[in-house]
Design a protein around this nucleic acid. Structure first.
Ligand SMILES: [Mn+2]
Ligand SMILES: [Mn+2]
Ligand SMILES: [Zn+2]
Ligand SMILES: [Zn+2]
Lengths: 145, 145
DNA sequence: GTTAAAAATGGAATTATTCTAATTACTGAT
DNA sequence: ATCAGTAATTAGAATAATTCCATTTTTAAC
């Protein structure tokens, strides 16, 4: 059966898509659902595997198409570190990412308003930043393994 | 003729490599030289083109090998934004990158110690960050085009 | 100069992602 | 409900940055 989003997620989802004149299809809902369901910053491949459990006929191209759409609607953020496959994150609050070099896991790191302001203040006059990306990498918390 | 590094760059170069038991070859010097020479955050492909002007026989594999070596020695930093090709930067001071979405140019943005500390302070207890990457993207300074 | 290790080379392989052309699913008039 | 037009999905081919591999060349040590 298709992924069932919570009522509030379903509303956000449908609303964000319709605002851009796009359709809330079951594939898009499912991709969004699996990203919300397990917030481990999955890759497109991970998402493909998970989506297939709910909608077995789904193609890889569709997963990529859906991801592009969801990112375009601002429902999901892309996380790029090094040259590794892009990962996807449904956390829309200002946050950074920490990648454990041992396990490969990616953790969310909240950014407080004060630090965020300081970061913004780095940008020289005449530049307009639409996007900020802050990534850490190193040894992660071993207790979380 | 092989690229001629300034005396001080040549010293840093040879010293950093020898510290790791690696040889300061002319290809490595040339790759390092072109990165120092034009600090526009070139891609491997850009570097390949520039290196060939000095050492025409150089292969693409060698450029990648040299870049890996230079990064491993800490002489050069990799800059990854989105999924675009990796770019290389010889600026070893703490700095962020701003990518102009219109021209694709990448600019260095200095990070003051205070902001750097605040950023470090975001990292949760138990995590040890070996690397920090801060990237902005948006509209760059049109006067620099 | 000989020998052994390191580096460079050319080309093949890998792989995440994008593209293309064909099919299917919606939408919204009629 | 039917039809037409558009949007979305699909399977597979194509792309492109990077890595790998086998071979040759260079270098360093003896
Ligand atoms: Mn898989
Ligand atoms: Mn070129
Ligand atoms: Zn995240
Ligand atoms: Zn830089």
């Amino acid at each position: 059966m298709a992924f069932s989003l919570s009522p509030s997620s379903k509303h956000t989802f449908a609303h964000s898509l319709r605002e851009k004149g796009l359709r809330p299809t079951k594939q898009r809902a499912c991709v969004y659902g699996v990203i919300l369901d397990k917030r481990d910053h999955p890759t497109a491949d991970d998402i493909f595997d998970r989506v297939k459990k709910h909608l077995p006929g789904t193609s890889f191209a569709t997963v990529y198409n859906c991801l592009e759409t969801l990112v375009g609607c601002g429902l999901v953020r892309q996380v790029n570190m090094d040259r590794s496959p892009t990962r996807y994150c449904p956390n829309l609050t200002p946050h950074a990412h920490f990648k454990c070099t041992q396990t490969g896991q990616i953790f969310d790191v909240q950014i407080d308003q004060d630090t965020l302001s300081k970061m913004h203040a780095l940008i020289p006059k005449g530049f307009l930043a639409e996007n900020i990306d802050l990534c850490f990498s190193g040894k992660g918390d071993s207790s979380t393994n």
